[in-house]
Design a protein around this nucleic acid. Sequence first.
RNA 1: GGGCGCGUAGCUCAGUGGAAGAGCACCCGCCUUACAAGCGGGGGGUCGUUGGUUCGAACCCAACCGUGCCCACCA
Length: 873
Amino acid sequence: MTDTPRPGQATPELSAQYAPGEVEQRRYEQWVADGLFKADAGSDKPPFSIVLPPPNVTGSLHIGHALDHSVQDALTRRKRMQGYETLWLPGMDHAGIATQNVVERQLAADGLSRHDLGREAFVERVWQWKQESGGKILGQMTRLGDSVDWSRERFTMDAGLSRAVLTIFKRLFDDGLIYRAERIINWCPRCLTALSDIEVEHSDDDGELVSIRYGDGENAIVVATTRAETMLGDTAVAVHPDDERYQHLIGTEVELPLTGRRIPIVADAHVDPAFGTGAVKVTPAHDPNDFEIGQRHDLPSLTIMDDHGVITVHGPFLGLDRFEARPAVVAALRAEGRIVAEKRPYMHAVGHCSRCNTTVEPRLSLQWFVRTEPLARAAGDAVRDGRVRVEPPELTKRYFGWVDNMHDWCISRQLWWGHRIPVWYGPNGEVVCVGPDDEVPAGDGWTQDADVLDTWFSSALWPFSTLGWPDETPDLAKFYPTSVLVTGYDILFFWVARMMMFGLYAMDGRQPFDVVMLHGMVRDQYGKKMSKSFGNVVDPLDWIERFGADATRFTLLRGANPGADVPVSEEWVQGARNFANKLWNATRYGLANGATVEGELPTEDLSTVDRWILSRLQHVIGEVDQQFEAFELAKVCDTLYHFAWDDVCDWYLELTKPVLTGDDEAAKARTRRVLGHVLESLQRLLHPIMPFVTEELWTTLTGRPTVVRAEWPTPDKELADDSAEREVENLQRVVTEVRRFRADQGVKPAQRVVARLEGLAAAGLAAHEGLMRSLARLDAAGGDFAATAKLAVGVGVTVELDTRGAIDVAAERARLTKDQAAAEKEAAQCRAKLGNPAFTGKAPEAVVAKIRERLETAEADLARVAAQLEALQ
RNA sequence: GGGCGCGUAGCUCAGUGGAAGAGCACCCGCCUUACAAGCGGGGGGUCGUUGGUUCGAACCCAACCGUGCCCACCA
């Protein structure tokens, strides 16, 4: 093998194996130092922008982030190479409850509560925590290779974003889209705050349905409940207006057991006469349905629990926790003989706090709400009229289901960490909403609302608040609307719909993003959800450490088609690591054989093999582009994997060996140039997926500074060459068939077999005899040649081999007989089909032709096998 | 309770009207000077079931079975 370094350049050296750890840190630091990820709002280039879904400040990088970020980075890096002015904006979410819980736990370790510190000191303490231990995840992002613009990092509580929050709150307030009201809300008795619908998770819990008789004699009415303790707050019993059984009771009163209170029996269409007894106890202060019934019938609301879920009424139960009160109330009722049916198990959906899993208590409470109806309608319309595209489209149904049925959004939280509600109450009942540039009311008796806003309120502003809104900044002008939002389908409703509502509202009807790309969840190799208790959780940092960031990314992206869950396993990441190594060694081969990227790509006198690989490359570029535009990153990975491994490594590199070790210097120079082009193109194509190894290889191969801003390949139609592709395919068939024969016959790979090739000229393969001999390890027939085996390989080429002493005739005959039977069956099927007038009459001509072709092939196979059998005699 | 998916090789998944594919796993043979994290070869599926539409169905339709997810104020 010759070793001819490029003029004026030292021979680059690569070790035999790729060692990612050595490369990654060095490369990332250089990229940042060179400002390669920085966006320029003043550029003339077309914009491409993504805002990173802000991770919680309490979070650290888990495998789901790794997937999410890998997708965004791949999209961003490709667009950057395509010449777009590219911004990927990073940042974090202040994560109200989650963060407050973390700091409260720290305090609890010292025996303190947040109330011991007081509000101001507590918030100060949280900020301090954030400075010291928050935001670990941002550092971890560098390990993945995220090409984010660090100069634009934002935090939902920083000054600019807080101003955006105040601005939009004020605007919504003035438009009558924010209001304060007493409503049934989800209350977490542990976090001591209201929760929105999306912060409540439903699970089917075991409950017990008990039937209780209210009243006596003629007036008795039986109700059923799973929450017996709430009967203490009942202010009515409701029945369906048409329910025959209770006509005589409607409008009367009944005595509520244990309390001595008399409550009315009302008729309400909400009641399902078929469920239970058809009579419902009504507790307006502790059940959303009951609240509405209460509103319709002007019933009083009687609150029976405090913030902690402790009973506040009725002597015997006073001070009991809600779960203690339940059996206590049942026992007391039983003592009075009012339990008319034994308790029976009952599975029903119960809400739990998404932060601490405490059972949520529906509770009447004075809170702030966003009136979502007009906002949600606009959010739905933007998708309906095609301004925003959802990938995969199937998920639009879920999106509509959500935005079209949205309840008003409870936005006040009884927490201290967050954006404080900018409303002040005056001594005479004044309510003043204070915008960012307004004077805060001063004087005696003015107090600010104590609550803070739901965390999702500020994250809903993320696509524009991070770009400088409400100011008309160059960033906002250049990068809004953002190009694509990438996130998991699990937060389509939580977050995406809210960004749509606020984006359309704040930006005068302009959508926050053009495309929503939803990926799936990362799962284990059996498709199981990852969970700590199951022990199947993968730590991406561990994988990056052991297999490299590129291998980790490739493993994730290889499953990342829109909407699809992504199973991963250690075996698979090993495979990806092997792939990185394969690329590494292909480039090593190129470097050792003088592959070059200097000078024009030759077009004259190219070998068939060179024309073939260039043609394949054009197809691959086209395919990859299509797949990228459809966000089908799994397919991108698959296409490039097979091109790199099968076409380039297994065939092309092998096929260049005779030329590159030969002595035709002109031919060698051409192939070196083509080889250099193919390798560096492949590296550019793979860079969005595997940034580190491609950077290392590309810079080494080309001597240029970085592939990060290298030009993305475009297909060159001039280089497409069908005849070269066909020729090489035929060559491959010959080689493969001979290899198969050798393997079946147990001929050692190293053993040269003497052979004669016939029919090459007719098959158009005359020029490639040397290549085929080299790949199939066939020597030219010499003087004592005796054809002991004859191989017809299907493209009109016959190989006669001298395998004296090397083959097992009986085994080969058995195999050929099997082949013969298969070919006969195939031929028979095709003949039957072609003999069927219904088929030939109705099927498209192309299909019929295809069947004819199959028949020809089958017949040729039959002839081939027959010839081989004969030769074996 | 409502809605949306899925069921293809041992595992994870592509394929969506023309006669079944990949990765890994498995079997056989090889340290053939880019790579043993490799090379060459191979076995393996009546495409959940049953009907229907069609010349033709993994693909379209219906029912059923299995399975997953989302939403949900029948006590």
